[in-house]
Each structure stands twice: as structure tokens, then as C-alpha cells.
Nucleic acid binder design. Structure first.
Length: 750
DNA sequence: GACTCCGATCTTTTT
DNA sequence: GATCGGAGTC
């Protein structure tokens, strides 16, 4: 166990104190993950604990996977049997086997946020409420907040405080909606993300025997990123460790950035109260960053009032000063950052993967992407819209979901008329109302469809039901990959996409194939104990943007939100868009506590950097499709100025680029400029995805195209920025048209 | 019921 | 700039 010797004293304390409650307050870059992994390794080696009896909870699948690998490298394949994963995935797994106790079938569906919102929209509509007042997002947040605090709808509706609260906001029916939402989820045998935690608590509360079983299974409980747990999560861990009291939580109050999701720093204080003989360890030595970065970060976080006292220090080199870049527009900001990366890369012989660009909101990635592509620097976007959020992927997944759980209403609504079968909103409504009125499930209605709808539509629906039943047989008979392939084919999804010969259609077809490949991989992966379709769906439902990385992504600059960056580190970090109203976010400026969370977010961003940090802001920025003037963020001033240098070399005066609104008038200008001569190729880049353009998706200026309405024409100019979205085309009979549509609708004649 | 066009809305962050 | 839902037309 010589690995222990490589640790400093407090780290060692965190590893060897295996019995009893322990809390490790770990400053940024202080080797928190090392403590956790070595602690688990130590338990297995020294304590001879069966990995099966250890539960380790993380916040992302990626963190879990990484930790598992690191433990495996120390203790070998024994680590396979560890219970390690996100709160959501671990308790989804437990709920599957115990669901019958709380009146759910084990094949329950996990609703994603889109499903939840769509369900709320339909409930609001059914209740004849104003959807402007009861916005799906707002209602869902309210429900989610209640669930995170373990407030059931019964409690919600009987507590006058909530009622009064809702009334002051002009939304007195929220409690009713909460109840209807829960009932509808139950009817559809579905749980949303919050339910996975809420229902686990219910399960443990109402079924002591079940709780007892898991209490005795998990002799040791470890929680990573403890500062981000909400009450529902906290209660679960407390219940599970109540017998053995061997609970270890690791976190940093200064990096708590998920209050909007119900995370509560108060949990750290509760923890001390709930476990009187708690051992507290502080890790204060930073191994990650230079002195300048550590000190700058300290100078920022010192402004926060709510925090545990910590003194983060490092013996690392002094390092370079923080580079402050000022730009006139968001486009220029992108250009300056791209140039800076290019220069640093050359001078210091670094690779793309040493760089990360961090921003407050996903929409900021656009300007950065454009700039990076122009100087030919490869990049990847982590998070944002992922593969699994694409329409065609969600369509096929809806088929799979409905096959597994026939009562999944959201999936049903999505695919009952896909491909088109002549089932419109009217019929769908009749079915749902039928279920409501008779108090029966969706599938019961479908099985007796002739009692609810008549004529041709009824026959179509009967065929639909027969098809889903056939799919179910296939799932039971064959492995997940074969079954999914059959479903993709026989549902007509593949066929429809195959017949769509447009570029977009081709891409979609390939994406569906890609999903089938993913199923295949899942089936073939020896690490998966169970490889049924249902398990695959569960994994997909709980997947996040960060979790999808492949080998092709290796040498690329990373672009992501600061939230996504927690737990990661890079040699060079660029924090972009440091402007008032953007970062700190406008919505956060209302209350002081929230501003503190924004400041913690800034702190997280700074402390991601190992060698060098750059910060940038723009004086004008497109937001909402309009050009807005911006002011530098107050956070810039909060960094002690002695750690900052203003980048003069890059502050070149540059005219503000024309607005996207003036796109049309500028197209011809562009076409005439040397940049867009005939034959110049611009890849068809889909701006809302990280999809990499393939050769088939290229369109040339001067190319002959065919449009369904205007007939034949030739491309005169194209939008250089939103490439692939807009083109100016000269049509034979209709003259020049600016096509505000995807190129996908154009057929290309080479 | 299918299709097209138009306007409202959105941008905080994620499991 | 992009999505979604509603209104209107076939």
C-alpha cells in the first residue's frame, strides 16, 4: 500500500479513517479525487471490505467511470463490483428491483425534461388554464423544487404557505397541477429525474424492510461533490448509513453551483448537526495551479460571506499573470481568443487539448466556434444539444420506450403518427380523455380502441397496437440490438429516412444507424451485467453531454459551460463573455445570495486553470438576435489587479461586424469579395449541434440546385457565419431568392 | 388530418 | 436564430 505514502497528512487522514462519519472539505485542486479513490482502495486492501458493500455516489457518469478506472489501476478487477455511479443511476437501478413496493412496475419509463414539459403543457391545456401564466418551464421548476425538498403534492396542497406563495405570483393552481402531474406520471408508469430521488425516499420511508436490506448491504457510503446534494439526496445517504455510520462526504462549499437544482450548502451544516462525532478534514494545499491563479481565485472568493474558512495555498511556481482581453464585439472576442490559442500553441508547443474555453451560457459557443473554424483549430463542444436529443434519435427511442412500457404517454404521443398514419391531435386527445374518464391506462384504451374511436382510424390504431405487441415479442426473444434493429425497420422510421434523399435526411439515416451501433456496443460490453433493451434505455435516459466522448475527440480545444467544467482541469483556460448581465447572469442579480453563487461559479472557472488563465469580454454582443452594448463584468474588478495584465497586443481596433439582420444586403458584397469566389466551399454546418460536417453536406457557390417550389437555380452567395442555414439563389423563373431555410431542402446537381 | 405560415418566446446553469 | 404552437387553407 505504498500509494498512501504519496499523500500529504490531511489527505492521508481522509484515507485511513475508514470508520465513522467523516467530512472532507477539499479546496479546488487539492487532490480530492485521489483521496476518494485511495480511500476505496484502502478499504478493499486493508479493511478487506467486499467491493459489493461499498457505495460511492458521484454527480456525473464520467466522474464515476474515471474513478472506477483509477481504483481498478490500484486494486485490479475487484473494483468491478463496486456500487459506483450517479445518484440517479444507482437509485434508478434500486427502484427497478423494488418498484412493486411503491406501486410502479419495474419497467417504468424515465421521463426526460422534454417529456415532463410536454406533459405539463397538456395538463395546463386540459385544465383550461392560460399557458402564458402557467409556463411549462416555471411550473416544472416549482414541482421539481418541491420534490427536491421532499414535499409531496399532498403536503404542498395542505400547507397554506405554498398556496399563499403561488397566489402572490398569480399562479394559484400550481398545487393542482402538481397533483395532476404526479398522477399522470403514475398512470404512464413514468418517473422524472426528481422522482428517482423522491421515490427512493418514499420507498425507504414506507418499507423499513427494504431500507434495512440496503443499509446492511452498504457498509461504507461515500459521496463526492457533497456541496451539490439536495435534501432528497442528503436524506437518502443519511438513511443508508444510519446503521453502520460509515459515511464519508467530500466537497467544497466554495464550489457549490447547483442551488437552482435544489443543492443547499446548508447540508454541510446539517451534516455536522446530524453526526455529532463527525471528523472534519480540510485539504488546503493546491497541487493544480500556479501561485498567481490560486491567489487570484482566493481574492475573488474572499468577497463571499457564506463560506467555511479555508486557506488555499500552493508551492507551485509563480506563473504568468492573468491575461485580460478586451474586444469590441463578440465576433472579435472569438477571433482574439482563437488567435491567442494559436499563438500559445506555437510558442509553447502545446496541443489543442491543453486549452479550454469556458462560458456562462451555451449560446455563447457560437461566436467561438466560428472563430476557431476560421483559423483551423479543432474543437469539441461538451454538453449542449447532444446526440440523444436529435429528433430522429428521440423518435426511435420513443418506439423502444413504448415497446418496453406500453403506457408511456409521451412516447405514444410522439410516434403514434410517425410515420404519418392519419392519426391527428383530435384522435390522440380522444384516447387520452378516454383513459382519464374511465380511470384506465393508455394501453387499456388502445386495446379496446373501438369503444373510443370509430372508422378507419380505429383500424389504423389496432394495427399500431399489433405492431407494438409484435415488437414486445421480439424484445423478449432476441437481444437488444437485434430487437432494436427490427423495430427501426418495421416501424417505418428507417424507411422514411431512407427515402428522404436530402442531405438532412441522409444525416438522419446515419444517426439512426449510429444509435443502433450504440445498442450493439452496449450489448457487447462485458462490463454490463444486464444488456436488455430496458437497461439500455435507462442508461440513455441518464446520460449527459459530458459522458459522450470518443477517441476522435482527443486533440481538440474544449468548449463548455462552467457548470460542465467542474472537476476538470486544463493547462490554459479562457473565461469568455465576462460582461454584466451575462456573467453574473441578469437573473442572478436580484438577490445577494444568488450573486454569491455566481461568484462561486467564477471561482470554479478560475481554478480550472493549471498554467495560464485568460479572461475576455466584448463591448457589443448579439443577444436575442440584436446587437447590445455590454459593460465589463464586476467580477473582473474583484480579481486583485496585481495578478492581471491587460493584453495590449490584441486590442486592435476593428469595425463592428454587420448584424445578422443585415444578412441579405451583405450577401452580395461577400459574394463579390475574394473570399467567396465561385467554387469556394463552405461546409454545411448545423449551428445547434456539435455535428461534424461530412463531405456529402457541402454546397458550393455557383452550384446548380433544385428547390421544390422554385425549381432550378444556382447559388449566388451564402452566409459565411450561419453557414448551411441561408443561401442566396438565382432561380430561372423566380429571380433571386434568399432562402431562409436549411440547405437540406435543396437538391444539389453537381 | 396535413401542410404552411406567422408570431411569440427564449437564454442561466443539469441529472 | 431557432423552436413551438396556433391559425388558416387545402
Amino acid at each position: 500500500m505504498e500509494y498512501i505514502d504519496s499523500l500529504n497528512e490531511p489527505q492521508k487522514d481522509g484515507v485511513v479513517n475508514t470508520e465513522g462519519p467523516i467530512m472532507v472539505i477539499a479546496g479546488a485542486g487539492s487532490g480530492k479525487t485521489r483521496v476518494l479513490t485511495y480511500r476505496i482502495a484502502y478499504l478493499i486492501h486493508r479493511g478487506a471490505v467486499d467491493p459489493f458493500n461499498i457505495l460511492a455516489l458521484t454527480f456525473t457518469n464520467k466522474a464515476a467511470k474515471e474513478m472506477r478506472n483509477r481504483i481498478e489501476s490500484v486494486v485490479g478487477t475487484d473494483a468491478r463490483n463496486l456500487w459506483m455511479g450517479t445518484f440517479h443511476s444507482i437509485f434508478a437501478r434500486i427502484l427497478r428491483s423494488e418498484a412493486h413496493h411503491i406501486g410502479f412496475p419495474s419497467n417504468f419509463t424515465i421521463y426526460d425534461t422534454d417529456d415532463s414539459k410536454s406533459l405539463i403543457r397538456s395538463i395546463v391545456k386540459e385544465q383550461n388554464l392560460d399557458d402564458k401564466v402557467y409556463k411549462a418551464n416555471v411550473v416544472l421548476n416549482r414541482i421539481s423544487g418541491a420534490k427536491n425538498r421532499m414535499v409531496s403534492y399532498e403536503e404542498y396542497n395542505s400547507n397554506p404557505i405554498y398556496k399563499a406563495d403561488d397566489e402572490t405570483f398569480g399562479k394559484p393552481e400550481t398545487g393542482k397541477l402538481y397533483q395532476l402531474y404526479v398522477e399522470r406520471c403514475r398512470r404512464a408508469s413514468a418517473m422524472d429525474f426528481d422522482d428517482l430521488l423522491f421515490n427512493t425516499n418514499v420507498l425507504f420511508k414506507d418499507h423499513p424492510a427494504v431500507l434495512n436490506k440496503y443499509q446492511h448491504r452498504f457498509n461504507y457510503v461515500l459521496v463526492d461533490e457533497f456541496q451539490d446534494t439536495n435534501l432528497a439526496q442528503y436524506l437518502i445517504t443519511r438513511k443508508l448509513s444510519a446503521v453502520h455510520q460509515n459515511i464519508c462526504v467530500v466537497g467544497d462549499d466554495a464550489q457549490s453551483i447547483y442551488a437552482f437544482r435544489g443543492a443547499d450548502i446548508q447540508n454541510i451544516l446539517n451534516f455536522e448537526r446530524d453526526y455529532p462525532d463527525l471528523k472534519v478534514i480540510k485539504l488546503e494545499q493546491n497541487y493544480r495551479s500556479t501561485k498567481n491563479i490560486v491567489n487570484a481565485a482566493n481574492s475573488v472568493i474572499a468577497k463571499n460571506r457564506v463560506q467555511l474558512r479555508k486557506d488555499i495555498w500552493t508551492t507551485n511556481e509563480e506563473g504568468e499573470l492573468i491575461n485580460l482581453i478586451k474586444a469590441f464585439s463578440d465576433h472579435e472576442e472569438g477571433r482574439l481568443v482563437a488567435l491567442s490559442i494559436f499563438k500559445e500553441k506555437m510558442q509553447k508547443r502545446l496541443s489543442n487539448s491543453d486549452f479550454a474555453i469556458l462560458y456562462r451560457t451555451n449560446s455563447q459557443s457560437r461566436a467561438m466556434e466560428e472563430a476557431l473554424r476560421r483559423v483551423n483549430i479543432k474543437y469539441k463542444i461538451v454538453g449542449g444539444l447532444s446526440f440523444y436529443q436529435r429528433r430522429e434519435i428521440k423518435d426511435l427511442i420513443a418506439y423502444l420506450r413504448l415497446t418496453i412500457n406500453h403506457n408511456d404517454e409521451e412516447s405514444f404521443k410522439r410516434i403514434v403518427n410517425l410515420p404519418k398514419r392519419g392519426i391527428g391531435p383530435g384522435t390522440i386527445n380522444k384516447i387520452l380523455v378516454g383513459a382519464e374518464d374511465h380511470g384506465i391506462s393508455l394501453w387499456k384504451v388502445l386495446e379496446n380502441i373501438t369503444q373510443f374511436v370509430h372508422g378507419k382510424v380505429a383500424v389504423t390504431l389496432q394495427n399500431f397496437v399489433t405492431m407494438i405487441k409484435r415488437f414486445e415479442l421480439e424484445v423478449n426473444r432476441k437481444d437488444a440490438f437485434e430487437a432494436a434493429t427490427i423495430i427501426a425497420k418495421e416501424s417505418g422510421i428507417l424507411k422514411e429516412l431512407y427515402n428522404d434523399k436530402t442531405i438532412e435526411g441522409l444525416n438522419r439515416y446515419e444517426n439512426v444507424q449510429e444509435l443502433l451501433n450504440a445498442v450493439k456496443e452496449f450489448v457487447d460490453n462485458p462490463e454490463n451485467e444486464t444488456t436488455g433493451l430496458s437497461e439500455f434505455l435507462q442508461e440513455v435516459a441518464l446520460l449527459t453531454g459530458v459522458d459522450q466522448d470518443n477517441d476522435e475527440d482527443r486533440d481538440k480545444v474544449t468548449l463548455m459551460t462552467i457548470h460542465m467544467a467542474k472537476g476538470l482541469e486544463f493547462k490554459h483556460v479562457y473565461i469568455v463573455g465576462l460582461e454584466e448581465d451575462l456573467f453574473p447572469s441578469q437573473m442572478m442579480l436580484a438577490s445577494r445570495a444568488d450573486l454569491e453563487e455566481e461568484r462561486r461559479l467564477f471561482y470554479v472557472a478560475i481554478t480550472r486553470a493549471k498554467k495560464k488563465l485568460s479572461m475576455s469580454y466584448a463591448l457589443t454582443r448579439y443577444r436575442f438576435g440584436r446587437l447590445k452594448n455590454c459593460e465589463p463584468s464586476r467580477f473582473i474588478e474583484e480579481v486583485d489587479p496585481k495578478y492581471i495584465q491587460v493584453d495590449k497586443k490584441f486590442s486592435i481596433s476593428n469595425p463592428i461586424l454587420p448584424g445578422r439582420n443585415s444578412f441579405v444586403s451583405n450577401l452580395m458584397k461577400k459574394a463579390n469579395s475574394q473570399n467567396l469566389k465561385k467554387g469556394k466551399t463552405i461546409s454545411n454546418y448545423s449551428p445547434q449541434s456539435d455535428f461534424i460536417p461530412s463531405d456529402t453536406s457541402k454546397l458550393n457557390v455557383g452550384m446548380k440546385v433544385e428547390h421544390p417550389k422554385f425549381g432550378f437555380g444556382s447559388v449566388v452567395a451564402m452566409d459565411e457565419y450561419g453557414a448551411g442555414r441561408k443561401a442566396k439563389v438565382n432561380f430561372n423563373n423566380f429571380g433571386e431568392k434568399t432562402l431562409l431555410l436549411s440547405f437540406a431542402k435543396l437538391k444539389i446537381h453537381e
